[in-house]
Amino acid sequence: MAEHPPSWAVFALPVLLAAVALVTAGADALLAAGARAGPARSPREAAARAAAPARGVLRELVRQPRRTRAADVALVRVGAALLPVAAMLAGVVLPLGFRSVSDLPEGVVWYNAMEALAWAAVWLAGWGPNSALSLIGGYRFLAQGLAYEVPHMLAITTAALGAESLRVGGVVDAQSGLWFAVWMPAAFGIHLLSALAMAFWGPFDRPAGRDVAGGAAAELSGVDRILLLGGRWLLLVVAAAMSVPLFLGGGHGPLLPGWAWTVVKTAAVLAFLLWARRRVPALRMERWTEAAWVVLTPLAVVQALVVAVVVLHR
């Protein structure tokens, strides 16, 4: 068990998460601009392309907020703000090296509970503006939740089962030898898929898809837009970072200190997700739900069974 972190860590966490989200979004913007207009001709141009998300935040700050006709403003406000707040609260159990802001005894459940708040957040933000396209976006996320959540819960339970602990620190300790990703590959893969799905990003971006003009975000401008779209990046970062302690051995690794291994592994997971999203089209839930229930859920159960048998004979 690691010692407690300094008390300022609580205030450093939101700043750190926001910074990582901004860097990740910048890398994605760089890739996107390269696809649309060819490779950058100068480092200066590349920097300007990567700065697009930061500029976007500044741009939304100076913009007027919108109220659509007969909108439920309170719901929009709450929904948009809930997403980043939930992502940060989930980040409490993320260890940097071997120390997290708070290594809760039920850390895995806490992460699951906070991440599930996205259901409420996106639906509220989609329902609130009284606009058909944004309503469709909000409901798309609920359908998506029904598809990804069960395999996701089974996957993180499998990691907890491997360590026989719901404490994230305990899961990391159990991986001082073999990483869980090696002997629970299905659970690891499912966790990465659900990281994309809960952040409604990449191949799971239909709740905020361009075909519904931005879906749940279609009617938002100003701070509400920053919160909802920034919140999804935060959620992506937290979920991707969570796969490091759960499956990739956390801070364990040779030579480098624990915190450095966490940083390297998190960056690798995020880079993989950024690459992977460019290789596949978006998954529509009316096709994906079937695959999630008929393939992923039984697969996750079998994976849990294998791990349970191994744990019994350890």
């Binding site: 060819g38 460019r278 978006a282």
Partner: peptide, 16 residues
């Protein structure tokens, strides 16, 4: 088509 099916990368390349 690619933009609507949610494949922004290919959509961007097609437009380029």
């Amino acid at each position: 088509f690619f933009a609507v099916t949610g494949w922004p990368d290919l959509a961007a390349r097609a437009r380029y």
